[in-house]
Nucleic acid binder design. Structure first.
Lengths: 144, 144
DNA sequence: CGGGATCCCGTGGGATACTG
DNA sequence: CAGTATCCCACGGGATCCCG
C-alpha cells in the first residue's frame, strides 16, 4: 500500500520548475492525478462537508456521508491530508477525539467544488429527463 | 428548467416535488450519481476539451486524451449523451464522420469544470510539496 | 472511420472483526 | 471513539478482434 513509486522527479523533470504548465490531458501528469482523486467516490462530499461546517469529527462525518464505510472514510481522509487539503488534529483525551478541517489550500478548492455540487442539484431534473428521453428513443428503435 | 420529469417517482418518493432539494449526501440520491459520473476517469477531460474546441470528432478526441482506450471513450461519450450533456451528430458519408459538441445543458457545466481543472494546474506545486512533506514525516516516524 | 462485442485482470470499495 | 487489518467480490477499464 505504501509506494512512492511515481516520484514526481521521474516525470520528465516537470516538478523542478517553479511555475509549470501542467496539462491534465497528458498521460502521467500529476494534475490528472488530482482530477482522479477528486473523482473518487467520497472526496467531493468530504471536502464539501468540511467547507460547510468548518470542522468535524470522524464519527460526525461518517453519519453525514450516508453509506460510507469506515475503511473508505479513513482512506479518503488520509489521502486528503497527504495532499495538504485537510488538517487532522488529535486531541489526547479518553475517549479520543479527532477533528478534521480544511487547510488554506483546501479552502481554495471550496469554490469550484461548491459550484460543482450546486450544479448537480440544480440541473438534476434536466439530466433525469434527458436520460428518460434517451432510453425511450433507444427502446423504440429496438422494437421497430 | 420548468420541466417536470414524470420518471423519478420510483426513487423512494424523494422526487415528488418539481422543485426538489436534492441532497448528494443522502445515499441513492441522483445528484450523487452525477457527482460519481463526473468522477470517472475521462468525463472531465472530454467535457473540457469539447468546451474549448466547440466540436470535435471521435478520433480527434482520442488523440487529445492521452491514454484513453476506444472502449472507454465510446462509453464515456454515450453516458454523456444519455445525460443530455453532449450531442452526437452522424454525418452520413464515406468514410463516416461523427461530431461531438456540448449541449446547452452541457455548457452550463463548463464554468465549474473549467474552474476545477484550473485549480488542479494552479495548485499542483503545493499538492506535490504537501505530499513530499507528509511522506518525509511518515518515514521519519517509521525509523525512530 | 467509428464504433460494438469479448475477454480478462487490477483495484476500488464494502463487510466484518479486532485494537489502543 | 477512531481507527487498523483481512477477506473478497464487482466492476472499471485496457487489449484485442470484428463489422458497417
Amino acid at each position: 500500500m505504501e509506494s512512492k513509486a511515481t516520484a514526481p522527479e521521474e516525470i520528465t523533470g516537470m516538478a523542478k520548475a517553479p511555475r509549470t504548465d501542467w496539462d491534465p490531458y497528458a498521460g502521467g501528469c500529476p494534475s490528472r492525478e488530482v482530477l482522479d482523486r477528486i473523482g473518487d467516490k467520497w472526496t467531493v462530499l468530504v471536502l464539501g462537508e468540511l467547507a460547510e461546517s468548518g470542522s468535524k469529527r470522524y464519527t460526525a462525518l461518517r453519519r453525514k456521508l450516508d453509506g460510507v464505510s469506515e475503511k473508505m472514510l479513513t482512506q479518503t481522509l488520509r489521502a486528503l491530508e497527504r495532499d495538504g487539503l485537510i488538517r487532522r488534529t488529535v486531541h489526547p483525551e479518553i475517549p479520543p477525539r479527532v477533528e478534521y478541517e480544511l487547510t488554506a489550500l483546501g479552502t481554495t478548492l471550496r469554490e469550484p467544488l461548491v459550484a460543482l455540487t450546486n450544479w448537480s442539484t440544480r440541473h438534476m431534473d434536466e439530466v433525469l429527463e434527458a436520460r428518460a428521453a434517451y432510453d425511450r428513443e433507444k427502446d423504440a428503435a429496438a422494437e421497430g
